[in-house]
């Protein structure tokens, strides 16, 4: 009798084991499919111009070649970087703050950047580069405040979220004040900066953004299992040997660098950081080893498709991409939200 029970026990255990391994392989396959989708959306973005959607870019004249190499290619490269950076920042923010509403925007980083950009316009800096520098510096200053709050050992995730939202209002008020005092032309520049725009990107900008966004990605991926443990609760994670406070500081540093770099070159491209991790979670679950690559790929897909749309929908006008990401992302997000009866956060 004992032998029978043991055999049954072993059979069930092996069964569970295999199911789990198969599920992991399925997730890998999903990521592969997403990767193909990302490639396709990048190709569409590269091929399409004011005349319509296409996979193949035109190289009929010298002018075409120049436009492609010096304008379109860096623009799409920036789209990919921004999509990846914002999506990863959002994933990290939601993980360490243990909150589905968290994103680089709710941490106040984007409002800081806007305020910095507004100052640069207000004091009439002579080059675009100074606007970028001002935006970056203020984004990092905002992060420093959040970082300081996180340094206080007992601060709860809620403290960081409320702190971020408070800082957001503070910088929002600052930007409004500058708009109130500014000339008409300056107001226009400030508002336009806020729309988000990939057209400002040249190869130098892309190179700098790449240096800020690409190296943090593998760092973040290495934190997967600590973040997985943190999903279960702060105390549980600590009981499992995770150094929660160090983890939190590391993540805030990574979020700041990636989102500040993304925002200062392109302005406010909303919604990507919030929604990419959620969409990825619906397809891949909460395990960060799969969730993170999935979120990055969704970020890339959303930004490059939005950019294609922004250039073609009302051509030859280019609609600011920050407007389109929400117009494109929200219906899609609501659709899968309503289609799936399962809950994706607690």
């Amino acid at each position: 009798m004992g032998g029978f029970f043991f055999a049954r026990w072993l059979f069930m255990a092996i069964n569970t084991y295999n199911n789990f391994v198969i599920l992991q392989k399925k997730k890998l396959f999903t990521i592969f499919i997403l990767f193909l989708f990302a490639i396709v959306s990048i190709l569409i973005a590269l091929g399409s111009d004011e005349e319509g959607l296409s996979f193949i870019p035109k190289f009929s004249s010298d002018m075409d070649n120049k436009i492609f190499l010096l304008l379109r290619l860096p623009r799409i490269a920036m789209a990919v970087l921004v999509g990846a950076g914002l999506a990863m920042s959002g994933t990290l923010a939601q993980a360490i703050l243990r909150n589905p509403l968290a994103s680089p925007f709710t941490l106040g980083i984007s409002s800081g950047a806007s305020f910095g950009a507004a100052i640069s316009v207000f004091i009439n800096v002579m080059s675009v580069w100074w606007t970028i520098v001002w935006a970056f510096v203020f984004a990092m200053a905002t992060s420093a405040i959040i970082f300081g709050l996180a340094r206080i050992k007992n601060s709860r995730p809620e403290t960081l979220i409320l702190g971020g939202v408070a800082v957001m209002f503070l910088f929002g008020a600052g930007t409004s004040l500058l708009q109130f005092l500014a000339t008409e032309f300056q107001i226009q520049s400030i508002v336009f900066w806020g729309f988000g725009n990939l057209g400002r990107a040249g190869w130098t900008e892309v190179a700098i953004a790449a240096v800020c966004i690409i190296p943090p990605l593998p760092f973040a991926l290495r934190l997967s299992w600590d973040l997985n443990a943190l999903v279960l609760g702060e105390e549980t994670a600590q009981a499992l040997g995770v150094n929660y406070h160090a983890l939190r500081l590391k993540c805030i540093a990574l979020i700041s660098l990636m989102s500040a770099a993304a925002i200062c070159f392109t302005g406010l491209i909303g919604f990507i950081g919030l929604v990419s991790p959620h969409i990825a979670r619906m397809f891949l679950g909460s395990e960060h080893r799969y969730l993170m690559p999935g979120a990055i790929l969704f970020g890339v897909i959303l930004v490059s498709l939005s950019d294609t749309l922004s250039r073609t929908i009302w051509s030859p006008q280019v609609v600011p991409i920050g407007i389109l990401t929400s117009f494109l992302g929200v219906p899609f997000f609501l659709w899968i939200l309503l289609r799936n009866k399962k809950e994706y956060w607690n």
Binding site: L232, G233, T236, E287, E343, N346
Partner: peptide, 22 residues
């Protein structure tokens, strides 16, 4: 601990596997 305090949903297998974190 007394309670489950997940921030995001996990499956039973994932939740238990997390005990192998160390």
């Amino acid at each position: 601990p007394q309670d489950f305090t997940n921030s995001f949903p996990t499956t039973v297998f994932e939740s238990v596997l997390m005990g192998r974190r160390p």
